Simulated scan of single mutants.
Amino acid sequence: MGVGKAMFLSEGTAESGAKVKFEPVQTNSIRQEYVCDKNEVAAAARRVIEMEEKGKREEAVNNILQTVRPKLDKYKFGDIIGMQQFRASKLDTTDIDDVNILLFGPTGAGKTCLVSMTETMFGLERMSAPQAGGGEGTIHLEPFLEKHTGGFKLLDSRGFFTLDEDFMSELNDILKGQTQALDLIKRKYDDIDSRAVSNTNEEILANRIHGLICVLDYNDPRFGKYKDKMNQYRRLFKKEGYSPVTVVSYKTEEAIPETVRQTKQEEAAFALGAAIDRTFIIRNAVAQSGGMDNNEQAILLQILETALLGAEQFIKIRKLDEKWKKVDEKRQTGGGVAEFIISLQKKYKWEQKDVDDLSKLFEDEDIGTTAALKENWEYLKGKIPKWGIVDIISSELH
Rank of each mutant, 00 (worst) to 15 (best):
K349I: 06
I80A: 00
L182N: 13
Y242A: 00
L304K: 01
L272W: 10
V286W: 05
N63E: 09
W324T: 10
F280D: 00
D97C: 07
E33H: 08
F160H: 12
K323F: 06
N376G: 06
F86K: 02
C36V: 14
I81C: 03
L361C: 04
D79F: 10
G310W: 00
P24Q: 01
W350K: 04
R46S: 14
G82F: 07
E170G: 04
Q313I: 02
S198N: 07
R187I: 03
Q32A: 12
L380S: 07
Q232I: 08
E165Y: 15
D73W: 05
V35W: 14
V260D: 13
K176R: 12
K176E: 11
L344H: 08
T138S: 10
S89G: 03
Q352N: 11
T246Q: 02
L300D: 02
N284D: 09
G368S: 07
L124P: 01
L397V: 04
V20W: 07
F223Y: 10
S249K: 07
F280C: 01
Q297T: 03
N231Y: 15
E396Q: 13
L236K: 13
T107V: 10
L102N: 02
A275V: 01
K349C: 05
I341S: 09
P24T: 01
E375W: 09
S343A: 15
L103M: 08
T93S: 06
S359A: 11
I276A: 11
I367Q: 04
T246V: 11
G388A: 13
Y233S: 02
P70Q: 02
K325H: 15
L361E: 02
T27A: 11
K386V: 14
L212Q: 01
E312C: 01
C36R: 07
Q66C: 06
I256Y: 09
K5I: 11
V197Y: 13
S116A: 15
G336Q: 11
Q131R: 14
Y379R: 11
K76M: 05
R195D: 15
